[in-house]
Write a protein that binds this DNA or RNA. Structure first.
Lengths: 367, 367
DNA sequence: CTGAAAGCGCTAACAA
DNA sequence: TTGTTAGCGCTTTCAG
């Protein structure tokens, strides 16, 4: 089926292109009969509008995608954003445009920013809901007015959002459990250091780990689950206390990104490499702890890939009418010492982030 | 800085838009002085081409990409092909077209098929050289006549090919060594079962493993390196002999795809889960051996991702003038029991391969 | 209700 | 070496 445009349709229908346009866009001033006739023909010949032409004619991108994620740099969200932008860049000639309205931090001024983006003329909104509850009305409203909402990394599962893209937190925890369990002798005691358990993500990771650790380590025990927060000093202290209280600990799973205080604590106890430490995510500060064996493995959420994928879902939906899956989980990456050099995340990259990240072609992941 | 087009530049430079176009694109038939003057103005006013207009004007670029890889189904190459096709599909509206000339098996009739594709009017050729030596003249000839050649999965490093996309075999071996070494006690003895060592890929994996195993397992020893071939019976027999001869073996690394005979041998010795088995790749037959613990982990080359990436490199090169990197290595995936459900590779998928794989959005990988 | 025609910014073919 | 012009496919305005 070769490409047909409105001219061809006009010819087939014996009308002018103006009429075809009116039919195709449900505009006024056209009789119901001709409209139906034209729509039928368009359907039959598989008409697909040329978005470049539309964009050119309208003087603006044919498709606008709003993006509302934190702007924090050298960081998880930075990579997420780069994934989205790098991918969007590729579809520019097709008339895809990004309207980027960042928040300063996850959840900060979120409501306002989202409301702001929604006031623009967008077809899709991609966001990381830091405070899902608060956003539900806005999200629902958007979906009502035919804006597809895609949540990345974190979900607003109570809302009417079309899609969630991210890693399955439960599976992350389970993978950590397997890595830990298989590395340790039977009957080993391990502990989890997590973030606020009221956050769905942390709870699921912790649960996944707790449930599956005994399956992978015969008679293994999860001795403690410690709730740390983002504060470094607190993390260090809690971890130290843990290590002191349970000298028999053989493994530690840190389910939040904030693993540095834990690394330092382990090191300060002279336990680098003795206590198996499995962390989450990946950033430059972690490199030395891989090198000295403090970190055994890290489970990486691949934000760049998440960004790419959410954008691709949007584009495939808009351009090819692909249905949006209600969720899209990607496989977490196991990062170890030997593969560390492959990850640009650990390199302290400088200014030209986007530039370089568009070189970084791809980071895709199977369903 | 509001948007300026070539008209505005032409006005500023007191020339016609044709001249501006020539300057901007380094075309012939323009004096060096005016070119510089125009470029300077363009720079000053921050000229950004309107990509939609360009796309429209150039019409669908009608880019043809030749693909010459084996057609074997339910298999590694099958996924590679699907990655290419799924990705190509996405760029159809940009005028990308695939000419698929499969070989029956890796290396079979390769020369003829490649010659055949090259006779078509293609701008890029993507292939898996099964017999690199033999193809060198053809590849060089292609590059000479301005056809960019991209090798996927296997390389023809002696040739003038533009790019190689694949996993770093040495790193695969090294990762296997780390997984193995860290899982075992010091002084453990392990062995490698590999394919023909004259194949570069097998040699590099084996070397990577051999060199790094002692680093990750104190005083660990690689007791034996066994060269098996594709034959199942031979594999089973050699592995059995190995296990019999070295009852102290604690680990086994299979660096070829053909791991099933090894799995069976291990199982028949009642060693499932006792001998740490690390395999390569992923296909449906392996699932049960993950479940009973025979396979400890597998290192997956992600053919789907390789396919996607090679196509994207081609597209980015053709459409956005991105330079082709001389090589693009992707991180191998560690597949373990807990993450197995995430991999569609192990599911015996039926007919509609391409259909489903286009749903499978992405599998990208960082540089 | 429908048709005709003018552009959107750029490329490319042809004139000068 | 430079200028002119005809589209690319679509939206939009203005006539019928």
């Amino acid at each position: 089926m070769k490409k047909v445009g409105i001219h061809e349709i006009a010819r087939l229908a014996q009308v002018s292109i103006g009429t075809v346009d009116r039919a195709l866009h449900g505009r006024k001033r056209i009789s119901e009969t001709t409209r139906r006739r034209i729509l039928e023909i368009a359907e039959r010949v598989g008409y697909k509008p040329n978005l470049a032409a539309r964009a050119l004619s309208q003087g603006q991108a044919a498709v606008q995608i709003g993006v509302c994620i934190p702007r924090e740099i050298h960081n998880y969200f930075d990579q997420l954003r780069n994934g989205i932008l790098a991918e969007a860049h590729r579809f520019e000639p097709l008339g895809i445009e990004i309207l980027y309205h960042p928040t300063e931090r996850l959840g900060e001024n979120e409501r306002e920013r989202v409301a702001q983006v929604l006031r623009e003329d967008i077809q899709v909104l991609i966001l990381t809901p830091g405070n899902p509850q608060q956003l539900i009305p806005l999200i629902n409203e958007a979906e009502q007015s035919n804006i597809r909402v895609i949540c990345v990394d974190t979900d607003a599962s109570q809302s009417a959002r079309s899609t969630m893209v991210g890693v399955d937190a439960g599976m992350s925890g389970r993978l950590a459990a397997e890595l830990m369990g298989k590395f340790l002798r039977p009957r080993s005691e391990v502990a989890v250091i997590t973030g606020m358990l009221q956050t769905e993500d942390h709870r699921n990771k912790t649960e996944g780990f707790r449930l599956f650790f005994p399956r992978y380590c015969a008679n293994g025990q999860v001795t403690a689950i410690v709730e740390a927060h983002d504060d470094d000093a607190e993390g260090f202290q809690k971890c130290s206390a843990l290590l002191k209280k349970h000298p028999s600990l053989k493994g530690l799973y840190v389910s939040t990104a904030n693993c540095l205080p834990v690394c330092r604590a382990i090191r300060s106890f002279g336990l680098a490499g003795k206590v198996r430490l499995i962390t989450t995510d990946l950033f430059p500060g972690m490199a030395p702890f891989f090198d000295d064996g403090t970190i055994f493995a890290s489970i990486h959420g691949r934000p760049f890939a998440q960004g790419q994928i959410s954008l691709r879902l949007a584009v495939d939906h808009l351009l090819h009418q692909h249905p949006l899956p209600s969720s899209y989980f990607l496989t977490p990456q196991v990062v170890m010492h030997s593969t560390l050099p492959m990850f640009s995340e650990i390199r302290e990259s400088s200014a030209s982030e986007i530039k370089s990240s568009s070189l970084r072609l791809a980071d895709l992941e199977q369903v």
